[in-house]
């Protein structure tokens, strides 16, 4: 491991500590703090509440409580769901797959379309295509995801009847075809913003690259234009996209929450919203922390990947 990787991991750990502090602060922001669930019930006296507080160690000084909380988080003890008394981590785990499935497929879709649009826009800069792509991306970034979801349901489910209007699969039919059929709508909706982001950044990255000296060198060698474009230009232009994809992760997670809500997709975002409805704070806080850690790991991974993909930074650097 290079010193860069170690430094980056230490930075990540420091950031994780700050993230946990913010999470802890929000937890205690609730009226009645972590006890709000009991207080909201209304059938408990102040004495009862004090007793529960003492039981849960909430009468101790905040820093002690924080350290205790952090220690338990690190050990994987994220508390129990109020709703079904399941451990929070396993509740999250059972919903993670659906969310990842949605996020991964839509990211792949966005990469394919977005990269293509961006590359073409850069090569034919200021062309009609470039103009439409630019305006289209700007509009795509401005459309509320949930509304786009409603439009997709209205057009493809209500109007044309091509797509189901929600859920991950039809009950009793978990075949791949059925799952894919259900995935198309939400995947399309979630991919909208990512596609716009990819096309914009890919375009400007390509514009940077195609004016580089080494592209001229490649041209002077007389190799086919297609190879120059893919082997020399796109290969380099994709490097910053690794970072962009990492930075885009929080937006993608937010989009997934909204998409899951519109399409009744049984993922983490829907679980989060349901838990808020049930005032299931351990799960709400758990998911909040979980997504933050996911984002943190995502950006860490993006950095390390960049490190591997760019020989100038890689472990083989002298």
């Amino acid at each position: 491991m290079s010193s860069y990787v170690i430094r980056r991991l230490l930075q990540g750990a420091g950031l994780l500590l700050l993230v946990s502090m913010i999470g802890f602060a929000i937890l205690h922001l609730a009226p009645g703090g972590p006890l709000s669930q009991f207080a909201a019930g209304g059938d408990m006296t102040q004495e009862d509440l004090d007793r529960v507080a003492a039981q849960l160690g909430l009468d101790r000084p905040l820093p002690i409580q924080y350290l205790d909380w952090l220690w338990r988080m690190l050990q994987g003890d994220w508390g129990l769901s109020y709703r079904d008394q399941q451990p929070v981590l396993s509740v999250i785990g059972s919903h993670l797959g659906a969310t990842l499935e949605l996020m991964l497929t839509s990211t792949l879709l966005a990469m394919m379309i977005g990269a293509w649009v961006g590359i073409l826009g850069a090569i034919r800069r200021y062309s009609l295509f470039d103009g439409f792509a630019t305006i289209g991306a700007m509009i795509a970034l401005s459309i509320p995801t949930f509304w786009f979801g409603l439009v997709v349901i209205y057009v493809f489910s209500v109007g044309l009847g091509w797509l189901p209007s929600g859920n991950r699969y039809t009950i009793g039919d978990e075949s791949l075809a059925n799952r894919v059929h259900h995935l198309i709508g939400p995947c399309m909706v979630l991919a909208l913003v990512s596609t716009a982001v990819w096309s914009r950044y890919m375009r400007s990255s390509m514009l940077d690259v195609i004016h580089q000296d080494y592209i001229r060198t490649a041209r002077s060698k007389g190799i086919p234009e297609r190879r120059i474009l893919i082997h020399h230009a796109v290969r380099n232009a994709l490097l910053p996209m690794i970072t962009i994809t990492g930075l885009h992760l929080p937006t993608l997670l937010s989009g997934a929450l909204v998409t899951e809500t519109v399409f009744t997709w049984p993922g983490m975002g829907r679980l989060f919203l349901d838990s808020i409805n049930y005032r299931d704070y351990p799960v709400v806080m758990g998911i909040l922390m979980f997504t933050a850690v996911l984002v943190l790991l995502g950006s860490l991974l993006a950095d390390l990947l960049y490190n591997v993909a760019d020989p100038r930074l890689g472990a083989n650097a002298t």
Binding site: D213, Y214, R219
Partner: peptide
């Protein structure tokens, strides 16, 4: 394209930026 690099070739000013870094 057949001419470039085969019949006539070129060396550029900036060796730092004229080679593809990746």
């Amino acid at each position: 394209r057949d001419v470039r690099g085969r019949d006539a070739a070129m060396v550029f000013q900036e060796p730092m930026t004229s080679l593809n870094p990746v």
